[in-house]
């Protein structure tokens, strides 16, 4: 099949609609009969990425591209950027506020979860300009969670 691409807006601090882009992506993959395990991996990554934008980023976009071999998930925002990507990738590191922690966020598992559930992940970020995360998922691979 030809590559199918869809994009969704993620609004800054919009906890009300947070997660809806990932749910749309999940439903899209389901309608295309993509393997259930792969859908779960894409769901984890989409949700974590989306929540990162809502909590820390600015206005954002989540886009998904699907072809016969792979799923590509891209999440970008124009927020404050990640100061130290290596540190942010460490499990347990978080810059979430006290209020966000009380809601069960800020475990410092977002980016590590995304890395673990994707086959390849790149993070690019510039201070005051924003962050772009790109993840790919092979249709053929079995991924551990």
């Amino acid at each position: 099949m030809a590559a199918l691409r869809k994009t969704f807006r993620i609004n800054k601090k919009d906890f009300i609609h947070a997660g809806e882009a990932s749910i749309s992506v999940k439903n899209l993959l389901k309608s295309l009969h993509v393997d259930t395990k792969l859908i779960r991996c894409v769901s984890v990554c989409g949700y974590e990425g989306e929540m990162n934008v809502v909590m820390h980023g600015g206005e954002g976009i989540l886009s998904v591209e699907i072809d016969r071999e792979k799923v590509i998930l891209e999440i970008s925002d124009d927020g404050p950027g990640i100061e130290n990507i290596d540190l942010a990738m460490q499990e347990g590191f978080s810059t979430a506020t006290e209020e966000q922690r009380e809601m069960g966020f800020g475990a410092g598992m977002g980016l590590p979860n995304m890395k673990r559930n994707s086959d390849h992940m790149t993070v690019e970020s510039e201070k005051e300009k924003g962050t772009q995360i790109r993840m790919s998922f092979s249709m053929a691979d079995e991924k551990g969670e």
């Binding site: 947070a18 997660g19 984890v44 929540m51 809601m103 966020f105 598992m109 979860n113 673990r116």
Partner: peptide
């Protein structure tokens, strides 16, 4: 939520104290 998102099995019942809307996603 990230821990649940990463580890909860399909078809499970989820026991939590969180009642805000993000649990439904």
């Amino acid at each position: 939520l990230s821990e649940v998102m990463a580890k909860a099995p399909e078809g499970c019942v989820w026991l939590t104290v969180q009642g805000h809307q993000n649990i439904m996603a």
